[in-house]
Computed example of a mutant assay.
Amino acid sequence: MTYFEWVPELDTGISVIDNQHKRIVEYINILDQAVREKDVSAVAEVVEQLTDYTVTHFTFEEELMQKHGYPYLDAHRKVHQAFTERVQNYKKRIDQGEDVSRQLLSDLRIWLTNHIKRDDKDYVEICNKIDHGWVSKAVSRLFGT
């Protein structure tokens, strides 16, 4: 059984964003597997990868919003920053030997679901006229693909 299933209600309609969100869901499921296997080193490694990928995703998303003149970019950026700090706090606690992995998993799933359904859905209408040339360059620059 998969810990976090992608459901259509999470689709924003912007495929590049949806694909990035799906990758974050994959990381969460990999983290769940490491937690169930009680593989402490794998948990730490996945949390590191998840954190790095999420920060890169946030940067991409914020650049997309800025390019399209999203009026609530600063507020959205603050939500991203607060979440990043929260995950980094979990990472520190894990690095110090505290077992907060189940709490982190729950927090990640709830936060991501709510963030996509509320915060991210707000910018879709403004940003759905995507300049695919810009998207390709930004994806390549940020994600190395």
Rank of each mutant, 00 (worst) to 15 (best):
I94Q: 01
T145K: 15
I17T: 13
K92F: 06
D18V: 06
I17R: 00
A75C: 09
V25S: 09
S106R: 13
K137I: 06
E61A: 01
I126A: 14
D74L: 11
I126K: 13
T51N: 10
L104Q: 05
I110V: 13
K117A: 11
H76M: 01
R93A: 03
K91N: 09
I110S: 14
V43F: 06
R102M: 11
D52L: 10
K137C: 04
D11H: 09
H132F: 13
K137L: 12
H21C: 12
H57M: 00
I24H: 06
T51A: 12
R86F: 09
E98N: 08
P8F: 08
S101V: 00
K129I: 08
K22T: 10
E9H: 10
E26P: 00
Y70A: 01
Q88D: 10
A82N: 14
D119H: 08
K91V: 03
F4M: 05
R23T: 14
S41Y: 10
T51S: 13
E125G: 12
T12G: 09
T54F: 07
H132I: 08
V79G: 11
T2Q: 15
G97T: 05
Q33Y: 13
I130L: 13
T59R: 13
L112I: 02
H76Y: 03
K91A: 15
R102C: 09
R102W: 11
A42R: 14
L104S: 02
R93L: 09
D18M: 03
E48L: 13
L142H: 04
H21A: 02
F4W: 03
M65L: 08
Q66K: 12
A42F: 09
I126P: 07
V79R: 10
N89H: 13
C127I: 02
K129V: 12
R118V: 15
Y90N: 08
E5L: 08
D131S: 01
A42L: 15
Q96N: 12
T56Y: 05
T51K: 08
L108W: 04
Q103S: 12
S106K: 10
L142A: 00
D119S: 15
L108M: 10
T2G: 10
E48R: 11
V135H: 00
E5I: 07
N89F: 12
E45K: 08
E63W: 07
S140W: 06
Q20W: 05
I110P: 05
E48C: 05
D107M: 12
K121T: 04
V124D: 04
T54D: 02
Y72A: 14
E125Y: 11
F83C: 07
Q103V: 10
D52K: 11
I94W: 00
R86E: 15
D39T: 04
K121A: 11
D99K: 01
H115N: 05
K92G: 10
G144H: 15
K38S: 14
V79K: 08
H80K: 02
K78S: 15
K92R: 14
L10A: 01
H68L: 06
G133L: 07
F83K: 05
G13W: 05
Q96V: 06
R77I: 07
I126H: 11
E98F: 08
D120C: 03
P71S: 03
C127K: 01
S140I: 06
E48A: 11
K67L: 12
Y53T: 01
G97E: 07
R86P: 02
I28G: 10
